[in-house]
Design a protein around this nucleic acid. Structure first.
Lengths: 252, 252
DNA sequence: CTTTATTTGTCCGTATGTATT
DNA sequence: GAATACATACGGACAAATAAA
């Protein structure tokens, strides 16, 4: 959106060159995107700005943009603007998928920032998921999760203090649920159930995720169990819906 | 509705705290519902009772309740009272789950309304999912889905015309994907993959779902395959996020 | 909550060049 | 060549959706 970037894309169209104006515009914008002048998720200049830049009518720009949106290169949202489509992060949901595995297998660099690690008294729903008495002490670990430096979600993990008294310290050192549980003597666990809902981002989440208050978030609630089937961890994650697709491979 | 339960919810609002009174009330009642103090179908205290409990004017309670009814958490019925709306529909995602099974196993009455059944040329993504050439003819079946008369979602199904020429007729008669495929000679199929995203309802979907344009929808894309692993059906469903929770049981 | 500004969507009309019949 | 249809390009006005104040 800087003028420098605008000028770097040779914003010239040639009338009577055999190619229609809107095709020339579409081709130049596509090139600009592929060259990286506009990165995934970036907002493109407005129709008005592009029309002035290319010295054409707004309708001509619209024709070019409609063509680009049909190929899936850009998305057009009324009232918001035009954006370079952002290939959403595929986040696999399976019995044995881990956060870091999920990203590394897709050549994304995972990043986890510890927001808080406190003891709390379990609410009814968390106690039920962990099969412990309501009000029992649990560790509440909140993290901010990134993929290639882009914020993709917030996670809150609950683990019973009585069973894993050193969990918070272990997580602080390792920043990994798997490693922290291992440090507490649990070598294997797997997902039992996952519940998925969507909602508009609560104000506090929106702030931390760096998104608008009226952008949707995908919320997952997972229960992890040990080899004896006993619940060991309850996790509630909120993903930026615009950046994440949950995928399930039903297998065999 | 017992007084004991009322008192267990800390019924305090703070004036001049930056948050409006009605938002505080709405938040506390929402928490009480999510915590299970009021269960689906329960009648909430009357406006008068809530106003006394929170020490605010009745109109302030009304504003809070109107907000909650807009989100679909409670329903307000003149002359009767205010009620917690039926629990969000749990929709199970598994290799062999069917729409009607899903609902009947939960004592919900499924309803399906055929919106359209046309032949179209497959877009790139649909063609890829069905493993057919782009542009090949497919049936596009669009339905509106209800549970106990409440609209829960919209579905769009795609099936190759070349392989199932009579599919649309069969679906018109049976209103069932399973039955229609059976009528075309396919006796068994199962889900291969599911992709889940969330977004704000597109205008047209919002109209048909009877929700606001800025309510979130959960979108699932599923590929169903036959016993030889060949894709037979591609489905894209949009659920009213406020009324539906997707659940996965990772099994064994 | 309402109001205001921004941005895209739709519709009206006009004109021009290029194929097709 | 004449008539027709179609795509392109421009200009303007208003509607609809969004976001911020």
């Amino acid at each position: 959106m800087t003028e420098a970037r605008q000028q770097s894309t040779s914003a010239f169209v040639h009338r009577g060159s055999g190619t229609t104006l809107w095709r020339q515009i579409a081709a130049q914008l596509e090139q600009a995107v592929r060259r990286g002048d506009y990165k995934p998720g970036d907002q493109l200049p407005t129709e008005k700005a592009l029309a002035e830049e290319f010295r054409v009518n707004r309708h001509t720009v619209r024709q070019a943009m409609n063509a680009l949106s049909k190929t899936g290169l850009v998305s057009i949202e009324q009232g918001r603007g035009m954006f370079v489509v952002d290939s959403a992060l595929d986040y696999a949901l399976g019995p044995r998928t881990r956060f870091s595995d999920n990203l590394q297998s897709r050549q994304k660099r995972p990043g986890r920032e510890l927001l808080s690690a406190d003891q709390r008294h379990a609410e009814a729903d968390i106690a039920r998921a962990l099969a412990i008495p309501a009000g029992a002490l649990v560790w509440e670990i909140r993290t901010l999760n990134r993929a290639n430096d882009r914020i993709v979600g917030l996670s809150t993990h609950y683990v019973a203090v009585s069973r894993f008294p050193e969990f918070a310290d272990a997580f602080r050192r390792t920043l990994s649920i798997t490693a922290a549980l291992a440090a507490c003597g649990l070598n294997d666990y797997k997902r039992k159930t996952t519940r998925i809902t969507a909602r508009l981002a609560p104000t506090e989440d929106a702030r931390q995720l760096g998104i608008g208050r009226n952008r949707p978030v995908l919320q997952t609630e997972t229960v992890n169990i040990d080899e004896n089937g006993r619940p060991v961890e309850f996790g509630r994650a909120r993903f930026v819906a615009d950046h994440v697709t949950l995928t399930i491979d039903h297998g065999s």
